[in-house]
Design a protein around this nucleic acid. Structure first.
Lengths: 364, 364
DNA sequence: CTGTTAGCGCATTCAA
DNA sequence: TTGAATGCGCTAACAG
């Protein structure tokens, strides 16, 4: 049981630190490598207590750490899980990553985190690299265009596609009800008395999340007999983006209250200063609402109405799905689709003062 | 050059997807595995153009991906870099991780991200796990108490300790000038005319960053002939924390303007609502300042004075240090210490209205 | 209860 | 210009 300071020991004996292997342990403990291997895998049942102790001692003495690469090579498992997202700064991504990180902290799995920046080609490249690394599971916020490849991956390891509708067979799909939430938010804005709702989004492309939110918005407009009013911006060029929003706002007739609805909070982060300083009172002249829930929405004045997505739930569900696949080899859940419900959180930025009844329907 | 859909091919031939190995490629290309291996490592010089093409074709046909575990086992390199931080939500950590992620996107290195939650024991466990996984380099925001172990690690792979002073030999240390920044901020608050400065921090323990900020604050107080006024809180218990801050604020004499200075932005995030709603006008009655720079500081009203740390620079320096070690095997930089300079960003939350001259020195 | 042995997939001498 | 053979560190039959 003598505690040995590994630093001193290794430092003195062996500056080059030729790694100690299972053989060294076996030798020192006077057993075979097999027995050591058994010990490492807690197969204590078939082992005398004495050898067990000898091995334990040898291991601490040598400060031995099994080589996971070698283990993985044999077992075809790397005990590594990849999370590939567009941008870690999205509160959605951050929350999912943290939840996974917390849940895997004591399982021995490591989390590889990669960002695609919305680039399908980069996504493809990263996926190939990760496959090479023999990841045991994949959590992916895909940018589309790689479905065939993803399907191949799902044949080999559990794949969970989050935040994007996916019909790829074999993958577990976890999303939120974007269409409905967007619709409800839009409707609520009109119902509050805002005459029009400006929808600011990145160009949807083939990204389901954006398409669904857009559709929800359109549906809300249609139901309220208003024309959609949409501005597509490019988050890659924040300056141009702000300028564009600014110029749009300058054309707004001041007489009637209107609302601005941004399709995600990273957009709002960029344009918020422009909106705030455009000369409209929030919420009486201009309402403000967004998807996603970064911390700051509750901190600014007025606090901002938003759609809260159950990101923790997404993380937990993702983590459990993968753990089930991996540990219990349960393949039942594969291919299942989960649609979690978001929640509309009404805050001060859409508490209009004016009476909704004053305004008839009209279109611009 | 015929494009083959890997999905179809593998799917049809082999549902179980027995992985294709270098042998399969060799066989199909009618060469030895050695030659294929050479091809994989771009040793084209000693290879006829024809075989090269045959191998290339075989690889795409079989949709072959080299097994990085096997490669790593031979080469003793996993092409994997670990980033171990306290909490990804710290803007410091997030920024460093993103910078690393961007810089390594095309290098073939993967980033393993882990959180310690400030727990040294968990940190130790994670480090052991990561070592087992044969990581090629380590970026660590340590919680202390593992220095001997870290020194061992640094003997084997490049280690960069960020955001914590470290004198462990062999590790590269990248920090910001916390003492000085904290001092400058404190001084600036007194100079603005705030009569006292309440310092809210987590208990510093042995964490250099916290100690230095605390010392800087104390030094600032001393220089201005004011007594320190410190509240230690526990971020793990946000409710208790808010209650405590609230009760402290209730005892403040309303006559004189004072300032609140939080030691990091995650703390401020938790207590901001309490501060805002405590009944003091910001900034005329209560000043507000913090370390760190999350996005929202500029968005709230009034905007919040803060210490901006050059997190991108930290990330770039970290990434380059590691790349130099890894690629060029340059061991010169090891053990070097870099102190980057933070910047005080004055905002509206500390633009006091009152005339500083009105207030003499006194202590509570 | 314990040991021998044969690979896992790849890179690398050394020969040819 | 190419190959055969060996081993990286570990696990798992299969023996004893």
């Amino acid at each position: 049981m003598s505690e040995v300071n590994p630093g001193e020991l290794e430092g003195v004996k062996n500056v080059r630190l030729k790694k100690t292997t299972i053989h060294d342990v076996a030798e020192l403990a006077n057993v075979s490598v097999t027995t050591v291997s058994r010990y490492l895998n807690q197969r204590y049942d078939a082992m005398s207590e004495e050898t067990r102790h000898r091995i334990a001692k040898a291991i601490t003495t040598l400060n031995y750490h099994p080589n996971a690469l070698a283990r993985g090579l044999k077992s075809q498992k790397s005990r590594t899980i990849a999370v590939v997202v567009v941008d870690i700064r999205y509160s959605f991504c951050l929350s999912v990553i943290r939840t996974l990180s917390q849940m895997y902290a004591f399982t021995g799995y490591s989390l590889i985190v990669s960002e695609t920046n919305g680039n399908p080609a980069l996504e493809r490249q990263l996926l190939e690299q990760l496959l090479s690394q023999q990841i045991d599971a994949l959590v992916l916020q895909t940018n589309g265009e790689n479905d065939a490849f993803i399907q191949d991956i799902a044949r080999v390891i559990p794949v969970v596609v989050v935040d994007r509708s996916s019909n790829v067979s074999g993958v577990t799909n976890i999303v939120t009800n974007n269409f409905e939430s967007s619709y409800v938010l839009t409707k609520s804005l009109f119902d509050q008395g805002y005459h029009e709702v400006l929808y600011i989004s990145e160009s949807p492309g083939r990204i389901s999340t954006r398409l669904e939110r857009l559709d929800g918005y359109r549906h809300g407009c249609a139901e309220s007999n208003r024309s959609p009013w949409i501005v597509y911006v490019n988050r890659g060029q924040p300056t141009a983006m702000r300028r564009e929003v600014q110029s749009v706002l300058q054309q707004v007739p001041r007489a009637l209250p209107f609302a601005v609805y941004t399709a995600n909070a990273l957009l709002l982060l960029d344009v918020y200063p422009v909106l705030r300083d455009a000369g409209f009172d929030i919420p009486s002249q201009m309402g403000l609402a967004t998807f996603d829930e970064p911390d700051w929405l509750e901190l600014v004045t007025p606090s901002i109405t938003h759609v809260y997505q159950p990101t923790e739930e997404v993380g937990i569900l993702t983590a459990n799905t993968i753990l089930n696949h991996l540990e219990k080899d349960t393949n039942k859940q594969a291919g299942k689709k989960h649609v979690l419900k978001s929640k509309l959180v009404l805050r001060d930025s859409t508490r209009i003062i004016a009476d909704p009844e004053l305004f008839g329907t009209s279109d611009r």
